[in-house]
């Protein structure tokens, strides 16, 4: 049967072929980045907004505690109020020393959040630098970083921190964060190394090499930005776990000194009056848990958004 163009064989019109949708793609349009895609999927989830608002509030409380209470957490304490219940102006009641629980919870935010942020920053910095150098350059550098990482990985973070904190004198938020990050960096370094290894073998790296871009510049401009996503997910979650770790150390009496107001210290001190006055424990513990929960939720959502496989399944 002859067809309209006079060909011997049937050739389908372009509109009827499976390549039609690909052909219709507008090539002049700017390519969408992973981050733009991730943002699109994140902003449609209520959990993302809930955790973001929570984190924003926590950040505000940590930065400007004075905005949220006019009561001083340790100067307005009166023994007459010892273990007193909630009353006007003091919604959470009083501690054993007669201090306002609400004010202490508000002012305790800063130390706990500082430890979490600082430790996460340190761990991410160490992990990204060491992991990417090891994965990218390989050879003896990789061998050294990986073996040293194995050694630190073999010591569970809090166990190592207990040993180090019990011999170090006077702790500050900085030193607690530093001690925690010493034992926690191998996790991030391992993930970064794996991600860098797979990014190094990709076409865009070869293209950059062919264009004559220097090796270090390729690492900075192409490899690291393309392999940082899993690290960001783990870092978000670990911010929460560092806050829990700080409170655990404070509970054991080797974390921040009792003169520093932190949730961990307040919870630890509350155990003496727990049976008669549980609210002293409940409110700082609730504040801590909500903070950790916010970062855990954000980490979950980031993971879903940055992992195209998980997104396709949903």
């Amino acid at each position: 049967m002859p067809n309209k163009s006079g060909q011997a064989h049937f050739v389908a019109e372009l509109e009827d072929t499976p390549v039609a949708p690909i052909d219709r793609l507008d090539e002049s349009q700017k390519a969408r980045s992973t981050w733009a895609d991730a943002w699109d999927s994140m902003r449609r989830r209520p959990m993302f907004w809930i955790s973001s608002v929570l984190i924003l509030i926590i950040a505000l409380v940590a930065l400007f505690p004075g905005l949220f209470t006019s009561v001083s957490p340790n100067l307005d304490c009166q023994l007459a109020n010892s273990n007193g219940g909630p009353e006007a102006g003091h919604p959470f009641g009083f501690t054993r020393q007669g201090c306002d629980v609400y004010a202490r919870t508000i002012f305790g935010t800063r130390a706990s959040v500082t430890v979490g942020l600082l430790a996460t920053g340190l761990v991410t910095l160490m992990g990204v630098i060491l992991g990417s150098l090891a994965g990218y350059y390989g050879g003896w550098l990789d061998a050294i970083v990986s073996r040293v990482g194995d050694i630190f990985f073999a010591i569970p973070t809090i166990l190592g921190a207990i040993v180090l904190m019990s011999v170090l004198p006077a702790a500050t938020p900085t030193s607690v964060a530093f001690v925690l990050s010493i034992f926690a960096w191998p996790q991030i370094a391992r993930i970064m190394r794996g991600a860098v290894l797979s990014a190094t073998n990709s076409d865009y790296v070869m293209a950059s090499t062919a264009l004559g871009v220097s090796k270090f510049r390729i690492l900075l401009r192409h490899v690291i930005p393309n392999s940082i996503a899993p690290v960001i997910v783990i870092a978000t979650v670990s911010l929460g776990t560092f806050i829990v770790a700080e409170s655990t150390l404070s509970f054991l009496g080797i974390g921040l000194p009792t003169s520093v107001m932190s949730w961990g210290n307040d919870i630890s001190q509350a155990q003496t009056s727990l049976v008669t006055n549980p609210q002293v424990l409940l409110y700082p513990a609730a504040a801590l848990s909500i903070t950790v929960l916010a970062f855990l939720m954000l980490g979950d959502i980031l993971r879903d958004a940055l992992d195209p496989k998980a997104r396709a399944l949903r």
Partner: peptide, 8 residues
């Protein structure tokens, strides 16, 4: 359960 510290 993850966000509440064990000792609490």
């Amino acid at each position: 359960l993850i966000s509440v510290p064990t000792f609490v």
